[in-house]
Amino acid sequence: MATELYWMDIFENFDFLLKGLGITMKLSLISIIGSLFFGIFLGIIRYSKFFLISWLAVAYIEIVRSVPLILFIVFIHFGLMPYIFGGAVSFFASSCVAFIIFTSAYIAEIIRSGLNSVENTHIDAAKSLGFSASQRLTFIILPLAVSRMAPALVSQFISLIKDTSLASTIGLIELTRSGEIIYERTHHVFEILLFIAFVYFLICFGLSKLCRIYEMKPYMQVEAEKALVIN
């Protein structure tokens, strides 16, 4: 039984772990931005009153939400990509595509429920002032919806960041996979995995804290500023 802890493993392989972390961050960032854009697009389509395209968005969302993420990753890398491009695509590219497809379905639902949460009274007021449908969406509905969607979006992004570890299954050497490679050699699983867990925690907790600030409504910020002046 091992009684001694081998923390040196972390420092000796620090550069390798850092490289893995870089890949995780890059993958997360690209997937967040991609799924946000695609998700907003899908969400607005789903919210729209055009039956056919709205139905297509529903179909997409329901299908994607009913399939396990890991299946997506494997299917896209080993099935879909070679089929489309006639050869293997990089692990990184396939992972990005898989995460964007998967997460955008969830984002779309968050966007739609946020849009639906905007009261008819505000929409009526905007209509009465002569705003066109796209102006209403841009200046009134979306800004109101976004402040309400922020908590749900952040928790979706936190899930996404943690889920990027699933890309290790197709061989992408991101943070989790780099850890695996190290402990497969040294057999010190405890130290490495604890460290990696801590890194994930830092990123996710940090993001959650950061967004708390943005969740504050504008008038709350005014109040906060006032409090600062008084104190």
Binding site: T121, A126, S147, P218
Partner: peptide, 9 residues
């Protein structure tokens, strides 16, 4: 309107 309906943001 009765409830003013100002844009809260």
């Amino acid at each position: 309107f009765q409830q003013y309906n100002l844009f809260p943001h």
